[in-house]
């Protein structure tokens, strides 16, 4: 294993470095504002004095790099400052919503990961059959549709025309798990539709690629039955690409949540972000972006590490 650990360590460090740079970008973007936040809050009509006073209040009179480190330091301790819009702590607003978002994404993942891998493997094995073609066309349609289109279609058919699920997915902390799942069904389904399609296509491509390898042909020429070829010869090697596919799609899931949350008025980070963007509530926007970026980077990291761990060449070094 000694060949793998340094490699993984290197990836982790790289991920951490990327996160740091991303935090600089997120912080720096707000610095690019013409004028500054104080000016922005008070509007053009404000007097010099009030602007200067607010600047001092917000600590804007200090140089940018000092404020960056303060911001980052506080953020690491879970303090993202106070919202400009309602003067409440950003962390307080963000925390429960982040859990909601994770719940929604998790639910979508639970539906889509097994489904997508199953369908993808099936499509690869039945390549060029009717099933493969229909699955290919349907997944293309699903990928091509904007999330809000799929969401509204589900609302029309499963909430309005047939009142099976609520069209508005408002969840509260005191809700029990059953109700929570029930209320979140439609948004989770919407996300699962898109992600399943992506994942299925990628799984299919990975498996087809694999089945073309000479060692699969060799196995067949040794008289190995089809089932065993798949299970024993293809699967161990398919693990790496499939882990990669899943992790990348989970990363997409967490960020793709924004639109779905808006469609279903779901109390998640995505909706908070969109609201704050239109209110130009910078501390909340920065914090939400950081949370999204960190999750995204984390899943990409998992994809990398998973690929390393499932590669026999790296697991058994020379």
């Amino acid at each position: 294993m000694n060949g793998v650990l340094p490699l993984i360590g290197k990836r982790l460090l790289l991920g951490l470095g990327t996160l740091l740079v991303v935090s600089i970008i997120i912080f720096g973007a707000v610095e690019l504002l013409p004028g500054d936040v104080a000016q922005e809050i008070l509007g053009q009509s404000a007097t010099e004095e009030t602007v200067a006073e607010l600047r001092r209040q917000l600590g804007l009179d200090q140089p940018a790099y000092i404020r960056y480190f303060q911001w980052l330091g506080n953020a690491l301790q879970g303090d993202f400052g106070t919202s400009l819009a309602n003067k409440r702590s950003v962390a307080e607003q963000l925390g429960p919503r982040f859990l909601n978002t994770l719940f929604l994404a998790g639910m979508a993942a639970l539906i889509s990961v097994p489904l997508a891998i199953g369908l993808g493997v099936l499509a690869a094995l039945m390549r060029n059959s009717i099933y493969d073609r229909v699955a290919n066309a349907l997944s293309l349609v699903s990928i091509s549709s904007p999330e809000f289109f799929l969401g509204y279609i589900l609302i029309v058919f499963m909430a309005v025309q047939n009142p099976w699920f609520p069209a508005i997915a408002n969840v509260t902390p005191e809700m029990d798990l059953g109700t929570r799942i029930y209320r979140s069904t439609l948004p989770a389904l919407t996300m699962a539709l898109v992600v399943t399609a992506y994942m299925m296509r990628m799984t299919r491509a990975a498996i087809i690629n694999l089945l073309a390898s000479p060692y699969i042909e060799m196995a067949r020429l040794k008289g190995v039955p089809n089932r065993r070829v798949i299970l024993r010869h293809a699967l161990p090697n398919a693990l790496a690409p499939i882990i990669n596919v899943v992790a990348l799609n989970l990363a997409y899931l967490v960020t793709g949540v924004v639109l779905v949350e808006v469609v279903f008025v779901y109390q998640g980070v995505g909706q908070l972000l969109v609201d704050s963007v239109s209110k130009r509530d910078f501390p909340v926007v920065q914090a939400s972006c950081l949370v999204f970026a960190a999750t995204f980077i984390l899943f990409n990291l998992i994809a990398d590490v998973g690929a390393i761990l499932s590669n026999p060449r790296l697991r058994h070094p020379k």
Partner: peptide, 19 residues
């Protein structure tokens, strides 16, 4: 490019459009 792609596109767009 690696760094730019480390931020999800839609989120990044929202951040930039705020500004």
């Amino acid at each position: 490019v690696d760094t730019l792609l480390a931020i999800p596109q839609l989120i990044f767009a929202l951040l930039l459009l705020t500004i």
